[in-house]
């Protein structure tokens, strides 16, 4: 039921916390290679959407389709709600690269170990393959010199690169970035943008929650505007940011 060129599909996602609707009936198709930016006022559910797509939080309803397989509460044709086993869900998470706002590196492990741990215990790659893949990804992100350092010794920008490497080395189907610039000094915003543009050029699908308009304009093929857990605008950056039709979106961008 999923087209082969689809990287991710979200169907009827709904999440409630304490009776409050955080995500309200979200439908989303992301084709392979697309760079999506998710905008919206704080508290609109941007980060919740990203976490839901990464299957990190329990959903009240709906499911996420990745690699042609549905995860969440899937209503099958015979009307029975199907849930996947925890193991299946755990395994598919390795296919979804996630870079946290605060990077959440593992402080007890050096950079090399941060990047190789999941290859070993989740993908169970052989040791030489792990070493090769780790070397390659560190070269690619220019962090080879940091291999023996611990996260406590790294700058914010370096931490982010390690976090990206940790996710990318698992060959994910797509990459999710939660506010990639908010924990960094302003002058590093350009570096992050360059990193994301590189990923896009290589054909990686990315979904990025951000507050940076410059990001959305220069990176995104598509911008999604979220308010109160609902997608209220969805289109190319020019349409959504520069000539918004929805009054809520208009009000938001008039602040910039």
């Amino acid at each position: 039921m999923t087209q082969p060129d689809l990287s991710l599909r979200a169907t009827a996602l709904r999440r409630e916390v304490g009776g409050l609707r955080i995500l309200d009936d979200i439908y989303l198709d992301v084709p392979k290679g697309q760079a999506v930016c998710i905008l919206g006022p704080s508290g609109s559910g941007k980060s919740s959407l990203l976490r839901a797509l990464a299957l990190l939080d329990p959903l009240a309803d709906g499911f996420v389709t990745i690699d042609g397989q549905a995860f969440g509460r899937e209503l099958s044709r015979d009307g029975i709600v199907r849930r996947q086993s925890q193991r299946e869900v755990d395994r598919i998470r390795a296919r979804i690269g996630f870079v946290f706002q605060d990077f959440s590196l593992w402080p007890h492990l050096d950079v090399r170990a941060n990047i190789s741990l999941a290859q070993r215990v989740v993908l169970q790659r052989p040791a030489d393959e792990i070493a090769n893949a780790t070397d390659r990804i560190m070269d690619r992100l220019s962090i080879a010199a940091l291999a023996d350092k611990h996260p406590g010794q790294l700058s914010g920008g370096q931490k982010q690169r390690v976090a990206v490497a940790r996710a990318l080395v698992l060959n994910p189907a797509l990459m999710l970035f939660d506010e990639p610039t908010s924990a960094l000094d302003p002058e590093l915003v350009g570096d992050v943008l360059a990193l994301l543009v590189d990923l896009k050029r290589e054909g990686m699908t990315t979904l990025t929650v951000t507050h940076e308009m410059s990001f959305a304009r220069r990176l995104a093929d598509r911008v999604i505007f979220l308010e109160r857990g609902q997608i209220v605008a969805d289109g190319c950056p020019q349409d959504v940011i520069d000539t918004p039709s929805d009054p809520r979106v208009k009000r938001f961008f008039s602040l910039f």
Binding site: A54, D90, I92, R93, A94, R95, S104, A118, V121, V122
Partner: peptide, 21 residues
């Protein structure tokens, strides 16, 4: 930090693996 649990889960580790590693 609660992010440490999430960071293990997000690379595909189970709760038990996250606890252990």
């Amino acid at each position: 930090p609660p992010g440490q649990w999430d960071s293990g889960r997000v690379v595909g580790m189970s709760r038990l693996q996250t606890l252990r590693y």
